[in-house]
Design a protein around this nucleic acid. Structure first.
Lengths: 109, 109
DNA sequence: CTACTCCATAACTCAATACTCATTCAGAAT
DNA sequence: ATTCTGAATGAGTATTGAGTTATGGAGTAG
């Protein structure tokens, strides 16, 4: 049974997609997705090629959006992806994108 | 098997999510989703509460993004959703959102 | 031809936000 | 106490994009 896209839902859905629509944030997500465990902010910044302040903001953003969790430990702060949705969406969308790429490629031959 | 979020893919994925992250565009999508057939631009604008010029831009945007198709017919232009992805994503995300709403609600009692 | 409808586009305004730099703060180590 | 490291935050800048208004074009009806 398909879900209905009600007006109040549009707010939330929009928020979620905004969180997922930014290149830098996607890099952070990929980093967290690859590392299956928690990563410190520094590690995320380094792996995704962002500066410290920027990574900090994007990570905070993801936490606010409910996509990541934050756990301080001593001096450093560890972030983990809140899995179910992100993985599913990535699979779905990446599948679609590569599918489309394949089709486009074929149609150009 | 999970798909890999490669660097070039990030461009595309980002573009797709940007297309899906705007309230007005989501309203247009919902309108097209509800009407299972093609809709004229005017009909879309009216049903989604957007002004003509604005609806025109968003529809053009969706076509560019590969989410809708455009078919002129005489004087008017009909738009249709390119289904598979949009429906799937909506189901996935709407399901997640309503799930989270339910959880939040419960945790507040 | 004229008038009307439907759509696209340009110019503009305005708000949002990504990025950087600099600073501050907290915990750890010496 | 001082120093060092990891992280958060504020100010400032630049960019992006949504929305509106107004105009032009293409098709249709009268």
């Amino acid at each position: 049974m398909p879900h209905q896209l009600t007006n109040p839902m549009i707010e939330e859905v929009s928020g979620l997609f905004i969180a997922l629509s930014e290149r830098s944030r996607l890099k952070v997500l990929r980093t967290l997705l690859d590392a299956k465990g928690p990563l410190s902010q520094g590690a995320v910044a380094k792996a995704s090629g962002l500066k410290q302040a920027n990574a900090s903001k994007h990570l905070a953003y993801l936490v606010r959006a409910g996509l990541a969790s934050r756990e301080p430990e001593g001096n450093t702060v560890y972030f983990t992806l809140v899995m179910p949705l992100v993985g599913d969406i990535c699979n779905l969308v990446c599948g679609h994108v590569s599918e489309r790429a394949r089709t486009t490629y074929k149609s150009l031959r």
